[in-house]
Design a protein around this nucleic acid. Structure first.
Lengths: 246, 246
DNA sequence: CGTTGATTTGAATATCCTCAACGTGCGTGG
DNA sequence: CCACGCACGTTGAGGATATTCAAATCAACG
């Protein structure tokens, strides 16, 4: 891993990019109190720069840290014993990575940067010992892992019950929502991942993704040029998710 | 919910059926110390009998409890806004249910008994407050949720990357393993769920499941009569999971 | 012994995949 | 600055896998 620490000192007088992970709007109806936020900063050891294509951690490594996305974006990849791979999630700023490692204290996925990115490193031992003193933090941790679980179950539904066009529509709307929640434009954004990566995540082949993108474009639902996407008919996209109305 | 409390008093001098959830072999390389086990029993409020087909909890209810399977088996069902449903997991004794509710403190699935079953009710507030004093318990909770997450990600891989026959083979081997881990016969067991339920979980139609069961039977991999299954060629089944060898 | 629900099996069909060819954008180096 | 190579993306035709529809069989149960 070519990760280089970018900064290790955090001042309390201005927001830390990773505070966001412990604040209300991405998780709980409770914001972490100021004093607990201070403690959190103590255990956010440092911020790593991860160049595009580099791994933050990989399957099988002892899981001693979790990471929050500080800037950029990442993918989580599971590898089966026979070497096949599938992307099980994309991560945008404010989201946590490595949580599935709580299972056996070994990471179960490879996490790779989709672009030059930054991740904040959080020591799990320190996190757990802080959580014993800070009830809100404890709550927040449960919430964060629970969130990932709820999301994974949603993804199970998508993969098991939805058709190709519904999957892609949901993917685009989901991405849009996550950007919106982080103050970015929900209607116009650049995909950080290839058609093949989208396909891997959605259980489709890259050609199918490409064809559907074109179809959505022609139907006037989106405007797409390479990785630049503009959602022009959100209603129309959302209707794809309700096949009974077709 | 017609759930009826079955027992509320637990004696320390014999194992409680739910101790298993907090013991090493299903989760951590650390067993919960005896004194912590005592505390755990205090917050396992009671054991509910859930008749076949009844719901233990449902989507949208405030999540104030988690449950461990005491006896019998359950399914977790997610429902999409348009009413489609998919099973995202089956639960056998010793496994936890309701963990995805940690996300928003609202259950995200319906959990339904596949047969007359018993579940142990654990108050989340009491669990969290105990966890603050009992580091091993805290660890165990993280492990339990992490486990569910890791499993959900595995399922994502199955649904997204595997073919129908691989999915069913994996399902049977997985079930076999889970029975084995609980001291039941790994080679011969009774499916507690219908073909349709298996299909729902695997993202297949019931006819496909049925056809594959017959095919496995004819290939001599399993012996199947209705819901009675006997694994006769474990190697053969496992080879299906490595398509390169076909 | 008939009814009901679950399962099996077959034939036709749809969806998505495979294979293949062709475009497009971008960086590199001449 | 342009030509080239390369990775990525698009599009088409044909094919494979799983679904749909339909009918027959089986098991459980009153």
């Amino acid at each position: 891993m070519k990760a280089i620490p970018a900064a290790t000192v955090h001042r309390m007088d201005r927001p830390h990019p990773c505070d966001v992970c412990f604040q209300s709007r991405f998780c709980l109806p409770i914001a972490l109190p100021q004093d607990e936020l201070g403690r959190m900063r103590d255990i956010m050891h440092n911020t790593m720069r991860i160049p595009k294509g580099e791994r933050l951690f990989e399957t099988g490594q002892p899981m001693d840290k979790v990471f929050s996305v500080h800037a950029g974006s990442f993918k989580s990849v599971v590898t089966s014993p026979d070497g096949r791979q599938q992307i099980v999630g994309f991560h945008v700023p404010g989201e946590m990575m490595g949580l599935e490692g709580f299972s056996t204290r070994v990471y179960m996925t490879d996490v790779v940067a989709l672009e030059d990115s930054e991740a904040c490193e959080i020591d799990v031992r320190a996190l757990e010992s802080s959580a014993r003193e800070l009830p809100t933090l404890q709550h927040q941790i449960h919430c964060l892992i629970g969130n990932r679980l709820a999301r994974a179950q949603q993804d199970q539904f998508v993969l098991g019950s939805m058709q190709a066009d519904e999957r892609l529509a949901r993917f685009l709307l989901d991405l849009s929502e996550r950007y919106k929640a982080r103050g970015l434009s929900p209607d116009e954004f650049v995909l950080r991942m290839s058609r093949e990566e989208i396909g891997s995540y959605l259980g489709l082949k890259l050609e199918t993704v490409s064809r559907l993108m074109s179809r959505f474009h022609q139907a006037g639902l989106i405007h797409v040029a390479q990785r630049q996407v503009k959602i022009t008919d959100r209603e129309g996209l959302a209707e794809l998710l309700v096949p009974s109305e077709r």
